[in-house]
Amino acid sequence: MSRKPKVAFFDFAGCEGDQLQIINLEEKLLDILSLVDIVSFREAMSEQSDDYDIAFVEGSITRKSDEQRLKKIREKAKILVALGSCATTGGINCLKNSWPSLEEVKKRVYGDKAYCFETYPSRGIDKVVKVDYYIPGCPIEGEEFLQVVKALVMGIEPRIPNYPVCVECKRNGNICVFEVGNFCLGPVTRAGCNSRCINNGSHCWGCRGFVDEPNLNAEKEVLMKYGLAVDDVLSRFKMYNVYRYKEIEG
């Protein structure tokens, strides 16, 4: 590109942890400024502009009234990137979609004032507008964001892995979580986190979403072989992936 691309950040329902991960790039964020102009980033700056090339959108859509704002962003942006689990798959906000009734969910939190508040089944932003690229994770990995920005600036396709976390985990020499008697969603979850949770003594929670064609049945069998009941397996699948799971399993 002949001039520096203009970049804007927006957010919907979420914890803003993904934008925080970008701020947490610390000195490296200053380096980014030599490649792009940040024209809107409400969490960190007062200046705002409607003139931008690349929009990064965090958060899921959880009510009809937010759709319009997202559609306007899409109209203005040449490239739209979903940032983080909530934007890419709906994320943890979709847990409420599993409830028999959203009215019940509202009542739980707002009691007899529930009628004041609007909500609908939570979803990723691609259920409302066309999304060009996805940066998954809860939260995103800062380095992955940097790679995507550099690729976009150079005009090449950003690459997000479409193989499971197990590939990275094995490379890191971790003992398989199943071998020590725990469960793990690594076999069906998209890599790119460098198996962070397993490296740190935990297991994969599935925050980066399923790989494109997850073998959920095989994973289910493995989990059951290791002593988990079906309900428990499904509950774990759904932690971050209620929306996607319903799409696959109907």
Binding site: I92, S235, M239
Partner: peptide
């Protein structure tokens, strides 16, 4: 936009609560 955490943790296990 409200996210209803106090409802979405209902039905989840003790070892998942801090994660959610």
């Amino acid at each position: 936009a409200p996210r209803f955490f106090e409802a979405i943790v209902v039905g989840r296990k003790w070892y998942e609560m801090h994660h959610i």
